[in-house]
Amino acid sequence: MRFSVGVHGLRARMSRRSFLKGTSAATAGLAALETALTPAGAAAADDPQVFGPEPVSITLRVNGAARTVAVEPCATLAEVLRGPLNLTGTKIACNRGSCSACTVLLDGVPVASCSMLALDVGERAITTIEGLANGDVLHPVQAAFIEHDALQCGFCTPGMVLSSAALLERNPQPTAEDVKAAISGHVCRCGTYPHVVDAVLAAAQARRG
């Protein structure tokens, strides 16, 4: 018998037995996904499931692929992306949701991955900067950032690009004010903002053809 954590459909399936034993997911997590076990205390099946503080095995949908990973409940999405998933394009700068360098898209919506627990993601599709290009073909926003010299040190760039790409999905013909609002959460200490606005407007035009 398997259990699901009811977190926006989070599919953190794990066996009650492996949970009750407090077995670390390093040894039990993946196995538990494949092994159906009968719970010892079926009468308690209505109680909310408790996970952790040991790692829990969860499957995240990242850049179109299902990635199963063992995470402690206290792990942020940014830490899981950069650590076990080795997607270091997502940056952690302030780690307080104040600079937006850690921006990723969840179902196309920009969020601060430093200020969200990995267990909060559930079934939502994660897009990181590594998942934006189509193979070797850059996303129009990426190409426009290069063309318009919209970055210097590059630390804010992955987040800026993702927020801009999300903007063009919901508003293909943005004004400069729309672009400024879309990137308003991003702190760029190099001061690239004017070139970012130029690049996003150009990318919008390029997408329209």
Binding site: V5, G6, V7, P48, Q49, V50, F51, G52, P53, V56, E72, P73, C74, L117, L119
Partner: peptide, 17 residues
């Protein structure tokens, strides 16, 4: 400073919370 380790549970109703 890293967060402390904690357990996670999910309430299905407000009363359960």
């Amino acid at each position: 400073m890293a967060m402390n380790r904690f357990e996670w549970a999910s309430a299905r109703t407000a009363a359960e919370g």
